[in-house]
């Protein structure tokens, strides 16, 4: 007599509630496709385990992600070895799996909205990056201030703003910080204040 969550899922998925799952933003089909007759506990034992840090508040709780052979994360729970959270998690941390690829609201393509348009359209990265660079350069070149009213050298541009973010890694933060300075931006802020 073996009970597996697999059998639970395949049953609920096949008789209607699968639609509900997708409508609610949790698409479990990816998981189902790899359903073996193993219990989830067994699958975790065979999965690749990676540690990460929670992406919500600043306590810095440790998490363990389990990734299957196809490269999909199928479980995320607290890291019992982590000295701060000792495996525990709050509602947000415990639900972090809902932020992975299974979340149907996740953006998967570059979206572009043209002036006056009432809809998004999908674009590829190359076109988008080139267009963004064009806009940045045109704005910067047009509005670059080499000297302020007092005649002091200031090398800045005041017509481009940058906001964010406190929810990326340190290396990303530092790179953004210096990229903004290299462009001459001064309107620079992030969520430290809100």
């Amino acid at each position: 007599m073996k009970i597996t969550r697999r059998s639970f899922l395949s049953v609920s998925g096949s008789i209607g509630s699968g639609i509900a799952l997708t409508a609610l933003g949790i698409d479990l089909t990816a998981l189902k496709a790899h359903a073996a007759e193993l219990s989830k506990t067994d699958r975790i034992r065979r999965a690749k385990q990676s540690t990460t840090i929670c992406c919500y508040c600043s306590v810095g709780c440790g998490l363990i992600c389990s990734t299957d052979m196809t490269g999909k994360i199928f479980n995320i729970e607290g890291d019992p070895d982590h000295p701060i959270n000792e495996g525990s998690l709050c509602a947000k941390g415990a639900g972090i799996f809902g932020l992975t690829e299974v979340n149907e609201h996740r953006l998967r393509k570059v979206l572009y909205r043209a002036p006056k348009s009432d809809k998004w359209e999908e674009k590829d990265w190359e076109w988008s990056l080139n267009r963004i660079a064009r806009l940045v350069k045109d704005t910067r070149d047009q509005d670059f201030i080499t000297h302020n009213e007092k005649g002091e050298l200031v090398n800045r541009v005041e017509t481009i703003g940058h906001y964010g973010t406190s929810n990326i890694g340190n290396e990303e933060c530092w790179s953004l910080s210096i990229a903004c300075r290299a462009m001459g931006l001064v309107n620079i802020d992030h969520q430290a204040r809100v």
Binding site: T52, I53, G60, I96, V110, P115, W120, L135, N170, E171
Partner: peptide, 22 residues
């Protein structure tokens, strides 16, 4: 008249790097 770009980003467990708690 605004041109708007919405670029899809990775979530934290989809990338390596460091993070500083308070």
């Amino acid at each position: 008249d605004t041109e708007v770009f919405l670029l899809p980003a990775s979530a934290s467990m989809e990338k390596a790097g460091s993070q500083s708690n308070s």
